[in-house]
Design a protein around this nucleic acid. Structure first.
Lengths: 197, 197, 197, 197
DNA sequence: AATGAATGAGCCTTCATTCAT
DNA sequence: AATGAATGAAGGCTCATTCAT
């Protein structure tokens, strides 16, 4: 997790601007100039700080993921009950600060970008594995069968992603309550369906 | 060199090429020239047939969706048992011909594109509503409570999308058996969890 | 004067279409396709008939000029009085059929085109000399001094062109009555100013 | 390589180059690249400074007109005698610096361009009205009848334009002495023809 | 630290033109 | 006679990137 706070404020402004612009346009096809100008600086300065468009994109993605990771970490602290932990994971995944239309759109853009960008894939992978590990860990305490736990984790990760992507495309903007509810009931169904495992 | 009456064939070739190129690159940022060349023609001809890059993209998307729709339609024909229908929906959603890495990637690209393109959103919407209507219809026969059916449909649609997107990013390429299995078990859990509804 | 009547009707239609399109757009930057389509044929056929865009333009210009020339010729026939002849020249120059906004615009376009096109310059030159010769001939009968006649002719040709161009740019469309009146009074002033010459 | 604070100079160079290129070719169909290269810079820089080809053209036209306007203004300063003023208008209209073949050609091109371009028409209109107002003002002091003055102004403006356009197309290049002489004698004839008005 | 100057590369698109049918 | 197929060339414009100041 890069400590962005330690970087000059200008980098933060730029990352924020990138998030805005990418989120608004739903594309990575945004010019560095547009991002830099939104951050109130010249594009040359953006290059000075980041070295290139790729890096701006990568750092912006890293920032988004690190926020999510931090949310999850802090939400899980001190909770040992698996159900509580699953709930915390949902809360973090759809946390109000991130589950806004523009942010979700940026998320999606990065998600797809990972398909063709190695560095983006790496970043996403780290986050993805952490989420899965948290899920597996929780489900292990619920299902005695490890393979069952693994499957439940995979399935839960899938529905989180699915709900995410579907809500991103809604004109009305995503509704986090509803999103969480869908995932929560998925978890409940999973558990209920295999009571003795 | 000019082949007469070649319009339909040429358009198909172009759409195929677009699918390839977009699927390979995971982006809409591909030049018309690249697509046209892959289809064995000059970019000028591509413009002659489609009128512009947007139309190429739109038509390609339409093609993908129409294939999916057709798969679903033919898979559902003559099945009245709701469980069979749900299974058919899964089969169609992850049908072997479409659930290939490149196709899935193209799918994803279009999916995201719909965020910023009105015509893409419209196309996606039509397909999306059809899927949902099929799901709701099936669940209505399983759950007496209509609201329960609606929720199950939404949840199932979500997990299908989630599994789709997750498998798209796998280096190893998507595994349709596994994908279907995850969704199938989600459906089973839904049903098992609310036996009396 | 090319006998256009002897050419296939298709050429005529094409020339007419070119006149329309050029007159409407006020530019030679119109595609052959647009012209051909306006004439109800494919651009390939236009090429078949004319061999190239340049020829289409040249022939169209030739047509316009030949019409003008014919008007002038028939208007002058049988008139020997110089004042009557000058009046006939004005009538022909601003003849109702040609002095329409679109036609005048096409005229202008060709006029400017002559600056950079040899063939256009040649055509214009022929017409220009004929007009001048007609003017000089008339003025010779009015002014005994040949140099005075030459000057009057040049001056009259100038004001005809000037009135033409100014009326071309009017939003309200050119007004031939007014145009002729200006030229007529110019002629009168010329004559009145040198009564004894 | 970058010169700092070069914007105004660069714009001027570009405008000059545009004038050259347009004047040489007698057409607006000149690529921005050609203009920019003539000005010793890349086309991208031209776009950077002007934003588009249209603006380059418009600014070039504006420059030409402003020069003409300035010539007229300074030529009229301190002159109150109407005949002197008319003479000054002619001098300015055919001032040596502007009445060169290439400049006149550019003028013509812009003139015709005004037919299809709103912004060009606007620019031309401003200049045109100023010229007319100057002419009317002078003739009002010569003719007591205002309608007579108005007609004389219109007629003079016409002959100026006509002489301009005719001289533009001469291979030998325009001859300002002769041009002025024609207009001068037109004015004289006007005045002589209506001595008591 | 910060920016305007500057450009090469590339993209979408149009067009005149040719050719086989 | 007539046209769709096909393309090379060119044009306007954008953009990531570099550099001097």
């Amino acid at each position: 997790m890069p400590r962005i706070g330690a970087e000059p404020a200008r980098r933060r402004e730029l990352i924020n601007a990138a998030l805005q612009v990418i989120g608004e346009s739903g594309t990575l096809e945004v010019s560095v100039k547009k991002i830099a100008n939104k951050a109130g600086m010249s594009s040359a300065l953006a290059f000075h700080y980041f070295g290139g468009k790729n890096q701006i994109v990568t750092e912006t993605m890293r920032f988004l993921l690190s926020e999510l990771t931090e949310n999850m970490r802090s939400g899980l602290i001190g909770k040992s009950d698996p159900h509580q932990r699953l709930e915390a994971i949902l809360e973090a995944s759809f946390c109000a600060s991130q589950f806004k239309r523009k942010t979700v759109a940026a998320w999606l853009v990065f998600y797809v970008h990972a398909y063709s960008s190695k560095s983006a894939a790496r970043l996403l992978n780290i986050y993805s594995r952490r989420l899965e590990s948290n899920l597996v860990h929780a489900y292990r305490q619920i299902f005695t069968n490890p393979s069952r736990a693994k499957k439940a984790a995979e399935s839960t990760a899938s529905i989180i992603d699915g709900v995410f992507i579907r809500h991103a495309l809604r004109k009305s903007g995503p509704d986090r309550i509803e999103a969480i509810e869908i995932c929560r009931s998925h978890i409940a169904a999973q558990v209920a369906a295999s009571p003795t495992n």
